[in-house]
Design a protein around this nucleic acid. Structure first.
Ligand SMILES: [Zn+2]
Ligand SMILES: [Zn+2]
Ligand SMILES: [Zn+2]
Ligand SMILES: [Zn+2]
Lengths: 153, 153
DNA sequence: TTTTTAAAAGGAAATGATTTCTGTTTACAT
DNA sequence: ATGTAAACAGAAATCATTTCCTTTTAAAAA
């Protein structure tokens, strides 16, 4: 789907290993979020030996480095997604088909002001995720899996 | 801390059992988010017999009913919080002391419009959580636990 | 090119929070 | 008071994720 381009793995003190690159390429091909085990199954088609811990380790490192993003899922399992958009933004995920789309919106400036002025605290990070049904899944009328994580009304 | 008032457990087809009420009361006394096991330990001071599954079950039911809210935590464990504010809003959580504060802000109207117009999808729910250090923890200069879940830059 | 070395990977095993199961007990509508 | 579906306890299972330890390897240094 997208090309992940040349990522500064070096800047993150991550060696450019075949496994790591393959994981990144697999993610870049997907337009949906994916689990560590799914990545692992795909990797096994390319390498004779791959350990699941290697996949978990790499996904975590890539996410920590900001190259890929985590998806919050009600079943509490880990899912990751690679998004080529380097500007700050958030995602709309389809709970039925796992498709991920960009949401170019983030009101964190206002929130930070409010936290600073009214609460006296300091914002370190924030989580924003929009769950729903994409166009095609919405048309099919499917409900998908229920998504009740965080505050939702 | 707060009184959870009279909640329409009946409206959710939940019986008013001693355990359930006790859990709700415990949560209402806290100004921080809390784990199922912590609730369980506190419950054991009030009942001779309490099962951990009972706690998990009740917390899940109360959260599904919108009476309490879940907190997204990087260690992937479950945490819950009771907030008496019935208006739609989100939370600022202190990653150091677990304190939770209201954030009266939510740009979901705009997001829904964008999702509808540009993506053609339908929003079912959304997750918004602001992580940081509250006033006192910020003053102490503590860092608290790292919080890297979801998209954060 | 040949070391050198710290990071990366494998694979087996452990972990432990959460869930499932099953046989009682209980809230509450009739 | 009785019936019935919901709740509960307790023990056991689950299973995604981590940990551990040994072997390989990327890539910096010589
Ligand atoms: Zn994106
Ligand atoms: Zn944002
Ligand atoms: Zn609140
Ligand atoms: Zn909102």
């Amino acid at each position: 789907m997208h090309d992940h381009g040349t990522y500064p793995l070096k800047d993150l003190n991550l060696k450019t290993t075949p496994k790591r690159v393959a994981i990144l390429n697999l993610l870049a091909q997907e337009s949906t979020y994916i689990s560590p085990e799914e990545i692992w199954r795909k990797l096994k088609g390319q390498f004779s030996r791959v350990g699941l811990p290697t996949v978990y380790r790499n996904l975590e490192e890539l996410a920590a480095g900001g190259i890929i993003s985590k998806v919050i899922h009600p079943n509490r399992q880990l899912y990751y997604y690679f998004c080529p958009n380097r500007d700050h933004h958030h995602h709309f995920i389809c709970v039925a088909c796992r498709r991920v789309e960009d949401v170019d919106y983030c009101g964190m400036e206002d929130v930070e002001r409010q936290v600073s002025e009214r609460i006296g605290g300091r914002v370190l990070s924030h989580i924003v995720q929009v769950n729903g049904l994409c166009r095609s899944c919405s048309a099919k009328g499917g409900n998908g899996e229920s998504t009740h994580v965080g505050v939702m009304k």
